[in-house]
Amino acid sequence: MQQVLIHVIPIFFALYMYVSLFHKTRLHWVIRGVLLFLILISCQYPAFCRSFFVGYDDRVPHLGIVLYCWLFSTQLLLVLAAFAKDFVGLIYRLVRKTKLPHPTTTAVSLLSIAMLVAAFGSYSALSQPPIYRLDVPIKNLPDSLDGFTIAQLSDIHASPLLDRSRLVKVVERTNALKPDMVAVTGDIVDGKTEARLQDVLPLKELHAPYGVFAIEGNHEHYVDYDAWMATYPTLNMTVLHNSHQILDVNGAKLAIVGITDPMAARYHREYPDIKKAMSGIPEGTVSILLSHQVKYSRDYAKYPIALQLSGHTHGGQIFGMHWLAQIINKGFVKDKYQIGDMLLYVNRGTGLWYGFPIRLGIPSEITLVTLKKKN
């Protein structure tokens, strides 16, 4: 049933958009036919993602996948434009007692704008993430930890869209920051190990004196969970499952705590357990929590945690839509939030899920966190 819906629902929205914008225009019937064909093709992108991206995507050139993403993004914007046009048209008819003028001009204008904006949004989604620098003042921070740096990568979503070549550059730029530690906060890959292993291999080249730590995200649970959990350690990443590791930084102790993802409940795997993860950490130790999702951050703040690093939201990806993402994630969507004595930082995503391949006004990021003594 789910496979049927993923084909049918997009067709419904595509046809609505076509009828709303193009059906009554004076465009030549050939042009309208080509538009309808492209609209029907692009609306099947979600189904393409589910069925084609799990192992057979190598049959499609990367440029072809990028162009398909652009078509899909254009259609998404046109659907929104159709809703907006119909709403404005309804108000216009109520006030002026007549229909909106020039349907052909309206349709062509909206199509042109959508194509340009989608091209920019797709470029923003696929381009290299900017570096975001964050200073975190911590009370009673030992002198040895003053200036300790953590590079955070989150929501890499290695896929046929965000492939090996992009991740190679991400790793190079991360290493150039010379961080003391690297934190990878979930949603590293989309797809089966045999299909995507080559795309995540660049992570093995991440270098930091105190190691590379990783946690699972919700996307790890969807495909080949056990295989990926066995693969990540071979990429020189220490994976934390409701556990911690204490670093000795020139005599000062720093606890890196990692918890599982709430999606584990759906698959009968280990649910996030902050109490278990924090158990055994000596009192007074500075603790940093890695948690992919942010929904339970207020509960985590009840524990002696100085900093929580998270992702999952992608910052909302589109300005305006980020307010909806904020509501869904209990008030957290991007940047920093002070919750009692704990600072929460939500990374906007180093990559993004290929099923929604557009960013507008909310860029991706590589975060460089620097711990500072609080005056």
Rank of each mutant, 00 (worst) to 15 (best):
Q2W: 14
F12C: 13
A14T: 07
A14M: 02
R26Y: 01
W29L: 10
L36Y: 05
L36W: 01
L40W: 02
C43N: 14
F52N: 08
F52Y: 15
F53E: 05
R59M: 11
V60K: 08
P61R: 11
L63E: 06
V66G: 08
W70S: 04
Q75H: 07
L78V: 00
A82F: 03
F83I: 11
D86L: 02
G89Q: 03
Y92D: 07
R93A: 07
L94C: 07
K99M: 15
L100P: 15
P103N: 09
T104C: 13
T106E: 10
L110Q: 04
I113P: 08
A114L: 01
L116V: 12
F120L: 09
G121R: 01
S124L: 03
A125D: 15
P130C: 13
R133F: 14
K139E: 15
P142V: 05
L145P: 02
D146E: 14
F148M: 11
D155W: 07
H157M: 06
A158F: 10
P160S: 01
K169H: 11
V170A: 02
V171W: 01
R173S: 12
T174F: 04
N175K: 06
P179E: 02
D180L: 00
M181G: 11
V184R: 06
V184T: 10
V184Y: 05
V184M: 12
G186F: 07
G186M: 01
D187Y: 01
D190E: 14
K192F: 11
L197M: 06
L197K: 13
P202F: 02
L203V: 05
K204H: 10
A208T: 09
P209T: 02
I215C: 13
N218M: 08
V223D: 08
A227N: 05
A230K: 09
Y232L: 15
P233S: 08
T234W: 10
L235V: 02
V239L: 14
S243Y: 02
H244F: 07
L247A: 04
D248Q: 12
D248A: 03
G251L: 04
A255V: 13
V257A: 08
G258C: 06
T260R: 02
T260P: 03
T260W: 01
P262N: 12
A264M: 12
A264R: 08
A265Y: 12
E270C: 01
I274G: 03
K275R: 13
K275P: 06
A277D: 10
S279L: 12
G284Y: 14
T285D: 00
S287Q: 05
S291P: 09
H292I: 06
V294Y: 04
K295R: 15
A306R: 11
A306K: 01
H312E: 07
H312K: 05
H312G: 02
Q317T: 06
Q317L: 00
M321E: 07
L324C: 00
A325C: 09
N329D: 02
V333D: 00
V333G: 00
V333L: 04
K334I: 08
I339T: 07
D341G: 11
Y345L: 12
Y345E: 15
V346Y: 10
R348L: 11
R348W: 04
T350S: 12
T350V: 03
T350K: 07
G351N: 08
Y354K: 13
G355V: 06
G355F: 00
F356L: 15
F356Q: 15
F356N: 12
I358Q: 03
L360M: 05
E365Q: 13
E365G: 05
T367V: 10
